[in-house]
């Protein structure tokens, strides 16, 4: 359970940092008026949707941290047999990176009011995300043909579960991205779109990060990394 405890500790540190800015030691009964409100006259400048996405990412992060915890507890059991990861997985990872980069490009285009660049970025981002998902399905197919079915070993079960949950989150992102792209297509004003595009981009980067962590876990790099850290500490 160390992964999730570490994750919760990180969240707690962020929450603690934020709370420390909120004058929790103030004596509210001695203060009257509105000037004590640190948010100033116009309220917080960060849009609610962005904060909402941040909180949602914390929830998703918790979900994957728990999966990682469960994975690392289950690997210690004797019946664990690592499964050979198909080469295609590396290609998929590359595609997901491209997807993330394309969306970042779209975001930058949106900030410059470059409508064409925006559409190109969104389309490349969306298409490569679809390609990533297709690639993941092909990986499943390859594993199935090679005899690594879901129930034959816990390593396989975890592989399918982890990739499926990650894929579902990408699919959910694609829905949001699709709606944003549709709005761009219909020529909605750029000012309205920027936020949606930014949210999609943040979500994409987050899913890329999660995927890289999961890939590290599935390939066993994380184990080596943890071992090295342990050796350095001892």
């Amino acid at each position: 359970m160390s992964a999730i405890v570490l994750f919760i500790a990180t969240i707690a540190a962020i929450a603690g940092w934020w709370l420390s800015q909120q004058r929790l030691a103030a004596k509210p009964w001695l203060e009257q008026g509105v000037a004590v409100d640190l948010r100033g006259d116009r309220g917080s400048s960060v849009p609610a949707a962005k904060i909402g996405l941040g909180v949602f990412l914390a929830v998703v992060g918790s979900l994957f941290a728990l999966l990682i915890s469960a994975y690392s507890m289950r690997t210690t059991m004797v019946d664990w047999r690592d499964l050979p990861l198909p080469k295609l997985l590396w290609f998929n990872t590359g595609v997901l990176v491209i997807s993330s980069v394309a969306l970042q490009w779209a975001l930058m285009a949106a900030r410059r009011d470059d409508n064409e660049g925006l559409i190109v970025g969104l389309l490349i981002g969306g298409a490569s995300a679809v390609m990533f998902l297709t690639g993941q399905l092909v990986v499943w197919q390859q594993l199935k043909i090679a005899g690594y079915v879901v129930a034959s070993n816990p390593a396989n079960s975890f592989f399918y579960l982890i990739t499926a949950l990650h894929g579902l989150h990408v699919t959910g992102g694609l829905v949001a991205l699709g709606r944003t792209t549709a709005k761009v297509w219909r020529g909605a004003p750029m000012a309205q779109l920027r936020l949606s595009i930014e949210l999609c981009t943040i979500y994409w980067h987050f899913l890329l990060l999660v995927w890289l962590v999961l890939l590290g876990l599935l390939t066993g790099w994380t184990d080596n990394f943890v071992d090295i850290c342990r050796q350095l500490l001892s």
Partner: peptide
């Protein structure tokens, strides 16, 4: 839950500090 949290974080009226 996302609603409850973000509403408390973002939609407090003027003068409504956390404390």
């Amino acid at each position: 839950g996302l609603n409850y949290v973000v509403t408390v974080l973002q939609a407090r009226t003027r003068g409504m500090t956390l404390m």
